[in-house]
Amino acid sequence: MSSLLEVPPYTADRRDEFLRQMHELHRLHLDGCASYRRFADVTTDVSESEDLPYVHVGLFKRVLLQTDSPGLTHERVLKSSATSSGVSSEIRLDKTSSELQAASTLAIFQDFLGREPRPLLILDSPRSLRTRGEMSARIAAALSLRPLATELSFLLDDASDPGSMKWGALEEVLESSQRLMVYGFTWILWQAWAEQRFPESIRSLLLGKEVHFVHSGGWKKLENVAVSRQQFEDTLLDGLAPGSKVIDYYGLVEQVGIIYPLCEHGYRHVPAWADVLVRDPYSGESVTDRVGQLQLMNVLARGAPYHSVLTEDLGRVVSGTCECGRPGKRFELLGRVPKAEVRGCANV
């Protein structure tokens, strides 16, 4: 277990230890992953996070990166949803990292949701679980909440059909619990829950319940149908008990285990076992005062070099202390690098 995971997630003054562990990871991947070694061989010691090499997020769609080392047991491949490019990122998961990642997400979620377990309702289909050796990002995200759950219920009969709600399963949970969690991809949470026409019996059971909605996956589809964050949250929380809330978190399959929930003041906080840098898209330099591409780092990734990933998400590191009280680094997520059409002939 990383010593960083033994402290609360939002803790200042652990940078030296973080850098030391990142260095160890970099060495592990250099030794165990030939592909990584070919492009990331930094021979001199580095004194700052920004000096450590990164893997571009798109590389996980082109090259299956795997680090082999004594004691590392590779288990499954985690696949992204491939919604925009049609090609999935593939992350080789290993046993040790999976344990660290589970501990990481649990600690972060507990900071935002509290420690008391409650039923978890997942807006997905159990069939999504049944692919041997592979796991979709959606299911992985849902299951990361499992340690906080007393029981799991998959609410959709068909993962691609938000109308396929299993009312019986929902009713059963509502009848027995006053507090619960609901997880779904942002778009599915909107379609399958916020826009859902609940039967009257279910609606009355929901009234006054304390519900924590957790969602991830991004706002693009909701922006396309002109749904604002305020409208989204107001619709979800309508009629629920005080203490109900909506947690929007940012995470990538290429950074599995590290999630960045949006705090009540609109920022995302960096846990002690992670770091976030912003890089200029043209010079590659780390910048602190402006928007650029986010580089996400963590000390959990052993089975493949996804410990330091340059994303195509745009963000800005924000200085000062957040009013929410969480110490350490914070940032704003500001969308994605805009894509221009590639013009050519037909054979791109």
């Binding site: 492009f39 997020v57 798109g58 090259v63 898209p281 340059l310």
Partner: peptide, 14 residues
């Protein structure tokens, strides 16, 4: 374009 600049970083590593 910025996304081509980013894509080039990926392509170089690839």
């Amino acid at each position: 374009d910025p996304h081509h600049a980013s894509d080039n970083v990926m392509a170089c590593q690839w």
